[in-house]
Nucleic acid binder design. Structure first.
Lengths: 245, 245
DNA sequence: CGTCTGGTTGATACGACTCAAATTTGGTGG
DNA sequence: CCACCAAATTTGAGTCGTATCAACCAGACG
């Protein structure tokens, strides 16, 4: 288990080597899911906490008439389902976008680690709160931005999140979402996503092919999307905290 | 301070009389805000945790071009800003819809109560998780439902939330949102909200006038809105837990 | 009374959807 | 390495839901 995975948790609090080792010790059991399969399904009583190790996943909600939304994405370093301690049944599904490797944590063991290591509990709480902030921004994105800016905004968010876990390479990163996925995440039609994407490309804001995203001028895309990185709470506050007290 | 306010927290865990007394003891300082004024503003470093005692509030996010979204509503019994322990600056504003009375809790004192009373910490965590689930459903609502169902869905949600804190009277409740508020919350135009509201009325699904909502046939509205109460996690799990151990 | 806020109406325009088909890409097995 | 198939992307034409702009109306309030 690569400790690099816990980088995301350290934005808020630096974890000590022991904290990370304790987490790693209970994250040994992994599971691999094929692309497009469910990790957890709506209605299930959840049994494990998952940590994404490799690949992308999405949280989806479905309407009785078949309409589906993707309401969150998970990239490496993201925990899903920290809420299982409390919620009785899943109100959404989590499915793999790509082939997905996750660590499967036993709730009891995680609880044990948290009770002994206040930094870990803080880090996980921070993780959840940022998740909630992202969700609010998505609501805002769907409610307030037209298609062009809305898609641009999603690109910026995902790019910055990938960058925060060192998964970008200069101005590019993996980007496994299909146009159909983008449609479900933005509340648009696949056809309209396609056309909007073409304008974004024509305007030189993004390149997207073969599951690879290139953003030649990030600042320009940020401006277009009216993106305010506030909500990602990426500032390295953790840097100020000593990990060894 | 009326203990009834903590009813919302008890959906998940029954709180003992002492738990509630401890909360009430630190919730003595109240603050009153005029309608349409900010309780907390975007960018602020938050200083208190707030509990809504009377009135409605909303969480809003604004775009540089002036477009605004309401991304959450708070009704009596709701805590706002439990995240202040972690987040450095507010990524949204909280403003009063009606004249608003809140309890202003000192973060330190709340922390103190939580550390001594595991049930309280559980209840607050549950509260946050439900808030996150509601946020996801809003994202879904904006992304997947057309105007008519979308507004219907919001009515059902707010009605059920009001009912869960005993603020409904049979098939009706206070409903202080203007059509302009509804527009900002649903990502629609005030004009379109007006017209959609007229259809909902014409179809006998809701009555709404003078800040009062009547839902003559809740089940029918639920069906129209494709509302699944799952995500509110209202089932009285707390009923199973003994408050005195 | 006038003023203000919130609600309503009408006419028109446009962004996004629908349906249907063609094309390209990527993966698989022969 | 090519042939094939399925998945993903692209294109076109026509429609519809929602936005826009501009009045107008009703009640609340000082």
């Amino acid at each position: 288990m690569e400790l690099a995975l816990f980088k995301r948790l350290e934005v808020f609090t630096r974890l000590s080597a022991e904290d990370k080792a304790a987490l790693a010790a209970i994250a040994t059991k992994t599971r691999v899911i094929a692309a497009r399969r469910d990790l957890v399904s709506e209605g299930d009583k959840p049994t494990h906490v998952h940590l994404v190790i490799r690949g992308w996943a999405a949280r989806s909600k479905m309407l009785p008439d078949g309409r589906r939304s993707l309401v969150s994405f998970f990239i490496p370093g993201d925990f899903c389902d920290l809420n299982i301690y409390i919620l009785r049944a899943m109100d959404h599904s989590i499915s793999a976008i790509t082939p997905l490797k996750v660590a499967q944590l036993e709730p009891d063991q995680l609880l044990e680690v948290m009770s002994k290591r206040p930094r870990v509990i803080q880090a996980l709480l921070w993780h959840e709160l940022v998740g909630a902030a992202v969700q609010r921004e998505w609501t805002h994105n769907l409610g307030a931005r037209p298609a062009y800016e809305r898609i641009a905004h999603l690109f910026v968010e995902l790019f910055l999140r990938m960058r925060s876990v060192d998964l970008t390479y200069g101005d590019s990163c993996d980007f496994p979402l299909t146009q159909y996925d983008l449609a479900e995440a933005t509340g648009l039609t696949p056809v309209h996503v396609n056309r909007t994407l073409q304008s974004l490309r024509a305007d030189g804001l993004v390149e997207l092919e073969r599951r690879r995203l290139v953003i030649p001028d990030l600042q320009r895309l940020i401006d277009v999307a009216m993106f305010n990185a506030n909500y990602l709470h990426l500032e390295q506050e953790g840097a100020h905290l000593d990990a060894n007290d």
